[in-house]
Write a protein that binds this DNA or RNA. Sequence first.
DNA 1: AGTCTTAGTATACAAAAGTATAGTAGTTAT
DNA 2: ATAACTACTATACTTTTGTATACTAAGACT
Lengths: 125, 125
Amino acid sequence: METFTDLIDRDKVQQCPKHYVLALTDTLNVINGKWKLPIIASLLHGRVRFKDLLENIEKITPRMLSKELKELEINGFVKRQVYDQTPVLIEYLLTDSGKHITKVIDAMIDWGMIHRAESIKSRWQ
Amino acid sequence: METFTDLIDRDKVQQCPKHYVLALTDTLNVINGKWKLPIIASLLHGRVRFKDLLENIEKITPRMLSKELKELEINGFVKRQVYDQTPVLIEYLLTDSGKHITKVIDAMIDWGMIHRAESIKSRWQ
DNA sequence: AGTCTTAGTATACAAAAGTATAGTAGTTAT
DNA sequence: ATAACTACTATACTTTTGTATACTAAGACT
């Protein structure tokens, strides 16, 4: 597949297709904000309950957790599963799309680590 | 190098090292907000002047452009070069780190496009 | 002297994101 | 009857992010 890097290399970025821009802003929306990545990290373990997320993620309030989970669900990133027991059991889990975001996270960590190394180096030049 | 995906696969994410988290938030800080990616996209063409950025990036105000460029400069992502001519010429350009962010952008576009395809599919199931 | 250009800054405001704290509904346990 | 647990919601507030509009400084141009 043709990548963004390819487009840049050929100095064609001005014609960067709209579906690329859409895909990019989609991804940004999914990971952006203070709590999205911590939530995703917690869900990568498997199915988790509201209460456990509240405990695992330091300092998040129920309001923010509820809001973010709703957004992630609407965006098809997270599934909310209700088990009709008593007491009611509700579990959150990542969809397949949700699981695949690790590729993006890897690329981000990769860049971030190289970038840190380079900014330290350049301070001593 | 050990990736985030590796950590998840081995169910070890709880011990996810701090430098990974730092690298990840660094990257997120660089690309998030409304204007960062449009500015980066414009700078990928080469050296650009303030005025040209104002024209290339639709609807950005000089205040926001100035603010974002300063942040990107502080983060070692962009370089500001002053040519002592008359009239003064100032050019902005990406550092090497800045250029390499295309890898992250590629991963994001990739995920975004697959995710879009999957959410459309799942609507008809 | 007045206008143009470049590269911004200043001030005030609106909107979005996040925080703090308390409360609710439906059980279950004592 | 009262207390506890789960999964939230409500209200009010603060902080951050972004917008609108106008202005400045320094030289060049006429």
